[in-house]
Amino acid sequence: MLSNEAVANWRLALDVLQVAATLLAFAAAWWVRKTSANRTAINGVHKEMRATGLKLSGRIEGVERRITVAEKEMEHLPNKHDMDDLDRRFDELNRQVAGLAEAHRGTNHLLTVIHQHLLNNGSKAG
């Protein structure tokens, strides 16, 4: 039979083994729970990212449509060359109008002289 000391040693070894097994089981349970919690959190983040991605995708499509419409509208707008051509035409038109105004001043002066002459001759005749 075993002596008391041997039994105490075996008992101590079994107690240490039991504590180690308990700690190992606790660590395994903690690890499983932590992994499960992380997986759940990661899945939640993925769902949020998908939802945000869908929202952004819709907004991007809307912006792309608006840009396409703006580009089509801009195709019909005058470019720099067209604007320079219009500027030259306006300058020419301004010169022509100035010439007409000058000619009109001369004609107006002539009519004023004729009018004065008729008024002066008409007062002498009467």
Rank of each mutant, 00 (worst) to 15 (best):
N43R: 04
S36P: 00
A20W: 13
L77W: 03
R88H: 05
R39V: 03
H81I: 04
T52Q: 08
L2D: 04
M49R: 05
A125R: 06
E61Q: 12
R11F: 09
V19C: 08
H76K: 06
D15E: 13
N43Q: 13
V32N: 02
R39Y: 03
V69M: 15
N120T: 09
L86Q: 03
Q96D: 09
M83D: 00
E92H: 06
N94C: 03
T22P: 00
T112E: 08
A25G: 14
D84A: 06
E5K: 10
E92D: 08
A6W: 03
G58M: 09
K124A: 04
L54H: 03
R88Q: 03
D82A: 08
K72T: 14
A6R: 08
A21I: 03
L100N: 05
A37K: 11
A20I: 14
N43A: 14
G44E: 01
A51K: 03
K72S: 10
S123N: 04
W30I: 15
V97R: 01
K47I: 13
Q18F: 08
L54F: 08
S123P: 00
G122R: 01
A8F: 02
N9V: 11
T112G: 07
H46W: 01
L93D: 02
D15S: 13
T68S: 15
L77N: 05
S3R: 09
T40L: 10
R59L: 12
G106K: 07
V7C: 05
R89D: 06
G122Q: 11
V45R: 00
